[in-house]
Design a protein around this nucleic acid. Structure first.
Length: 465
RNA sequence: GGCGACGUACCCAAGUGGUUAAGGGGGAGGUCUGCAAAACCUCUAUUCGGCGGUUCGAUCCCGCCCGUCGCCUCCA
């Protein structure tokens, strides 16, 4: 079975066939670090993470690049407001970004380049476009891409280039353009704005050029997958394609993948709409990071996903269910024969899981396969038809699937000595039928974040997180 | 106005031209249990926005209508 991915350019799912067999090169449009990212942004990064995790799970080598935009209008404005530098401001929020990514279990990209550290690469690209007649300079030192020089312009977004001439708005900033549709590759210097001295003149980069320059730097002029939110289809990715392909003469990207928005209150989550939530705030409310992660990946990436208190609660409960199973499997002891049908059960689950994800990362049936297995394993634990080794095997199997999902509890570390002592005392109390003492210790352990449950195999415990 | 998508139970959310419409959450009842928790069992959409059409048969295909959302401007 092969992996199908929905390519925006084709408007259809296409079989993944990397340019270099066995090695997939992925570029994800990362955030502009002008402030703390919200969970809508993280839905995108979690989609990227799921994609990369699954490709690796399926045996591909993956080189993953996610850019961080650290110079733009909002950063400049923010730095000015705080009387600090764009480097200080963007550095601060970049740290917060990485911290939130770690909280959510997002794999660290192989490269997270900053725009400001790739100015020479951008300049080189812009020079090529100037040389090729695809770009021109205006009086203020800005350089624009000439859309009229690129007939393919707008194909990704299915835009009619002629139609764009009607009803467009002219930014006061951008006087001097030959055509209002032309976009900035390079912005001429202005007082109070950071500026770089370069061979194409002083100024700072336009928005789109950084992604072309950085993706090509790390992945080559032509690579496999480029991801981003649907809002980036136009103009960002449209412009990236034009400038990249005009400069290199090669196809820029083989598969364009776009994720839908996270919604809250029936609208997309957006800072401008004021309906945002941040990772830190949600964790501070006592929601576990894994529950938040599950809530944000639980629907297909191209479908709008509703977020709210209900979805967080549902995800929390689902994660608890998984945790309880792991605790039960870890505690389970049965000196009985191996379950002859376990291997078949696991194989079936594995097949359903991969079939689902192979189909454009269709996560819902994949999760259904996992939770079907959870129920079946609970049944077998209750019925005591598994051997002790079976229980280990089952847990290991789920951990293997979890390389993709990232929602299982971390392998249980031993309890702190004092907590273990309480647990032992409680076992003794129970043996002595000292229910009052036993209940008291259970409450005390819960207060320390350890949930204790009694089972036929003795006490089970799991972290509350 | 142009382009794109969506509308499935109380909530979230899969899915298929035809035997029981996934899964998670929630709710009701039950089993187990010193208690608690967990788990398991049963029930919770004769129905898939509405109206037509194609078909032996449509939730799934086509058309229209209604509703919602997104992009067309910074945006994940």
């Amino acid at each position: 079975m092969t992996i199908q991915l929905f390519d925006t350019m084709a408007g259809a799912a296409r079989e993944l066939a990397p340019l270099e067999p066995g090695h997939v090169r992925v570029y994800s449009c990362g955030p502009t670090v002008y402030g703390p990212a919200h969970i809508g942004n993280f839905r995108s990064f979690l989609f990227d993470d799921l994609l990369v995790r699954y490709l690796r799970y399926r045996g591909f080598k993956v080189t993953w690049v996610m850019n961080v935009t650290d110079v733009d209008d909002r950063i400049i404005k923010g730095a000015r407001a705080e009387a600090t530098t764009i480097g200080e401001l963007s550095g601060r929020y970049r740290k917060m970004l990485v911290s939130d990514m770690q909280t959510l279990g997002i794999t660290m990209p192989d490269f997270m380049p900053k725009a400001t550290e790739n100015i020479p690469q951008m300049v080189e690209l812009i020079q090529k476009l100037l040389d090729g007649g695809h770009a021109y300079k205006t009086d203020d030192g800005s350089i624009f891409f000439r859309i009229a020089s690129w007939p393919e312009y707008g194909r990704l977004a299915r835009l009619d280039p002629e139609g764009m001439k009607v009803g467009e708005r002219i930014e006061a900033d951008n006087y001097g353009k030959d055509d209002v549709r032309d976009f900035a590759l390079w912005k001429g210097p202005k007082p109070d704005e950071p500026s770089w001295e370069t061979s194409i003149g002083p100024g700072r980069p336009g928005w789109h050029i950084e992604c072309s320059a950085m993706s090509m730097r790390y992945l080559g002029p032509s690579f496999d997958i480029h991801t981003g939110g649907v809002d980036l289809v136009f103009p960002h990715h449209t412009d990236e394609i034009a400038q990249s392909e005009a400069a290199t003469g090669q196809r820029f990207v083989a598969y364009w993948l776009h994720n839908a928005f996270l919604q809250m209150g029936g609208q997309k989550m957006a800072k401008s709409l004021g309906n945002i939530e941040r990772v830190g705030d949600i964790i501070d409310r006592g929601i576990s990071p894994r529950a938040l992660r599950l809530a944000l990946i639980s629907a297909h990436y191209r479908m709008a996903l509703s977020f709210g208190e209900d979805s967080l609660q549902a995800a929390s409960s689902a994660v608890d269910r998984l945790d309880a199973l792991f605790a039960a499997l870890a505690t389970y002891r049965c000196d009985c024969a191996d379950d002859a049908t376990l291997a078949g059960l696991l194989d079936g689950t594995n097949a359903a899981f991969e079939t689902a994800l192979d189909d454009d990362l269709n996560i819902s049936p994949a999760l259904a396969a996992l939770f079907d297995l959870v129920r079946e394993l609970n049944r077998r634990v209750d019925a005591r038809v598994l051997s002790t080794a079976d229980a280990r095997r089952a847990a290991a199997f789920i951990r293997d699937l979890d390389r993709v999902l990232g929602i299982a509890p971390t392998a249980e570390a031993a309890l702190e000595p004092d907590l273990q002592e309480m647990l032992d005392e409680r076992a003794a109390a129970r043996a002595a039928r000292d229910w009052a003492g036993s209940d008291q210790l259970r409450v005390a352990l819960a207060a320390r974040g350890v949930l204790v449950e009694d089972s036929r195999d003795g006490q089970r415990w799991r972290r509350a997180d």
